[in-house]
Computed example of a mutant assay.
Amino acid sequence: MSNVLYSIFPSENFIDLGLYQYGWEQCDPAHSFGPAARNHYLFHYVISGTGTLTAENSRRESVTYNVKSGQGFMLFPHQICTYIADSELPWEYTWLEFDGLKVKEFIETAGLTMNTPIYRPRHKDIAQQMTYEMLYIANHSQESPLHLIGHLYLFLDYLAKSNSSPIQTQGNRMRDFYIKEALSFIEQNFQNDISVEDIAAFCNLNRSYFGKIFRDTVGKSPQEFLISYRISKAGELLKMTSLSIADIGNAVGYPNQLHFSRAFKNVYGVSPRAWRYEQQEKME
């Protein structure tokens, strides 16, 4: 039996929560990775063994942590880190690399930050359910993308529940209400000429305060989120319909085709026409 499972997720069309790569490994003694930085969030759960993680904190200072079985560690986007399995009792771990517009909120609920990256679950029974979801994903790469994303949501739910406290949950309740209201407004009105001021007004909040709690929760400014949401919807229309580029731009809130093409390229790196062609090539 191989001592490693490794898979790359086949689709990147999930904007709220996306999976990138995942797997399981029984590490060799002193096996190491890094120093390197990831583009997305990467969570390791240690099933057995021990090792060390050296990672930057929010002040870009390198801090070393010992991580053993029953614990885990979160790596953050663009954070330089190195992790090394013990030379006598090396790690067996499973991992998921993921990202999305709602990920930052889940991770903060679990109490994980660049300054506190080590996962030490408060509730062992829920941590076991979380581990099951991670291993399920690692062992079912043949399942559909939507199926795997469903299990990724369950993983994040168990991650947050296994390490959250009642005080944390109660303290975030009002902020979460405003963010849900804002997201609902965007989902229902993204195709119209709406601004950040309109979203803040709908929530009955000061624009500055609304922008702060939105970025703190979602990890993007309201304007960045609105653009990402519109472009993700445009991607769906480009892939699933034969509508013209101009019609699709208009349908997602960009009546000016030049502005739409520029915004699309800023997100995907290519023009809408080139992206549609690439997707058609993949489906043939």
Rank of each mutant, 00 (worst) to 15 (best):
G150W: 03
K124Y: 14
A160N: 00
E143R: 09
T116W: 02
S48L: 01
K180N: 13
I126Y: 07
A55W: 02
Q71Y: 07
T131Q: 06
H40I: 13
Y45A: 09
F76L: 09
H140I: 01
C27M: 12
K180S: 08
L75K: 03
W24C: 01
H44A: 04
H151R: 13
I213H: 06
F76S: 05
V4S: 04
G211D: 04
S165D: 09
Y6M: 04
Y65Q: 03
N139M: 08
V67W: 06
R122S: 05
Y119K: 05
T64N: 04
Y158D: 07
Y41I: 10
N115L: 04
D125N: 12
W275F: 15
R262H: 12
A263S: 15
E133A: 11
I227P: 08
F98I: 00
M240G: 03
H140Q: 05
D157S: 11
F9Q: 06
Q79A: 02
E281F: 04
L135D: 11
L75G: 05
V4C: 01
R276A: 15
F106L: 06
T94V: 12
A201H: 01
T109D: 14
N57S: 08
F177V: 15
R273S: 14
S261T: 15
E12V: 10
A201G: 00
G249C: 13
G150K: 05
G70A: 11
T169V: 14
G23R: 04
Y41K: 09
R230Q: 12
L112T: 00
Y41F: 15
H44Q: 08
S87F: 02
I47Q: 08
N189V: 01
L205D: 06
A246P: 00
L17H: 00
T241R: 05
Y254P: 06
S2V: 07
F202S: 12
F155G: 05
T54M: 09
F14I: 09
V4F: 00
P145T: 06
L183V: 02
F210G: 02
C81G: 03
R120H: 12
E97G: 02
K282W: 02
G235Y: 12
M240L: 15
R230A: 03
H151F: 13
C27H: 11
N192Q: 15
Y268L: 14
S164K: 01
T52D: 08
C27A: 11
S32A: 14
M114D: 00
E97N: 03
V196M: 11
Q129F: 10
F202Q: 12
Y119D: 07
F202A: 11
G51E: 03
L96M: 14
I245T: 15
I213D: 08
R276Y: 07
L159A: 07
Q191N: 06
E236K: 14
A85V: 04
L53Q: 10
D28N: 08
L154G: 06
T131L: 12
K212R: 15
L159M: 11
I84E: 10
G23Y: 03
V252L: 04
I118L: 12
N13D: 11
T109N: 13
A127H: 12
S261F: 07
P222L: 12
G49W: 06
T113S: 09
I194M: 01
L156R: 03
M74C: 13
T64Y: 04
H259Q: 15
N250M: 15
I137N: 09
P255L: 11
G49E: 08
Q223H: 02
V252M: 05
F214H: 02
T82E: 13
R215M: 14
V267C: 05
Y254A: 09
P145C: 04
